[in-house]
């Protein structure tokens, strides 16, 4: 037993919902309810790998049309201009403020890509039981959880501009299908990171250093 005992080694379990500590044998996994909040007690989130992979792949499939299809149409005096996520960022950089362009670029491009890469890495390395950089990988998971929902930024921008720019023939903004796909990408990646269980990072091979 290592210096820091884990719940399973002591025959304990922490409720995933309320944190209550209970004693439980492995045979009871998924059969008992938390005495405090009534949620079912699991050692690990059920089917974490399968659910997380499925949602992540679905999110990636949505992410392709989200980037290729335009998300917003600006029509003014008969002049029509369709913007994709990337061209919106470029426009903001050139005409508006570069600082804000960086924020939008991070929220719309960097954060979703980071989520795909990070969750993919976590899924593969945990499945192999790797003991490489466990603490850092757990921190990576916390980062994904923390910044995940900020990707909705672009969706809200399109929604607000659509509601505001209603000057008929003079100027009009319409949402295009890209924004729907992008919204779905964000929701699916959020579900994917919720399905992953960071405890899996610490299962598998014994730690060599601590």
């Amino acid at each position: 037993m290592s210096a820091w005992p884990r719940a399973a080694e002591l025959g304990l379990i922490g409720c995933h919902v309320c944190g209550q500590v209970c004693s439980m044998t492995d045979a009871d996994d998924g059969a008992l309810a938390c005495p405090r909040c009534g949620s079912t007690l699991h050692r690990r989130k059920p089917a974490a790998y399968a659910r997380c992979w499925a949602l992540l792949i679905a999110a990636f499939l949505m992410y392709i049309p989200a980037n290729i299809l335009p998300i917003m149409r600006t029509a003014s005096l008969g002049d029509i201009d369709d913007n994709t996520i990337l061209s919106g960022v470029v426009e903001l950089w050139v005409k508006g403020s570069p600082g804000l362009a960086v924020i939008v670029f991070c929220a719309s491009i960097v954060v979703p890509m980071l989520k795909f890469l990070a969750l993919g890495t976590l899924l593969i390395s945990s499945r192999r039981g790797s003991n490489w950089a466990r603490r850092q990988r757990t921190q990576l998971y916390r980062l994904v959880e923390l910044i995940g929902y900020w990707s909705m930024l672009d969706v809200f921008v399109v929604a607000l501009l659509t509601a505001l720019v209603r000057f008929g023939y003079f100027s009009l903004v319409e949402p295009l299908p890209g924004v729907v796909f992008f919204g779905l990408t964000v929701v699916l990646t959020m579900f994917a990171s919720m399905c992953f269980d960071p405890r899996l990072i610490w299962d598998g091979k014994e730690d060599s250093d601590d």
């Binding site: 005992p5 884990r6 304990l12 379990i13 922490g14």
Partner: peptide
Amino acid sequence: ALLICEHCDTV
């Protein structure tokens, strides 16, 4: 008297 870490299951 105990707390279990929700990210790594350490007691």
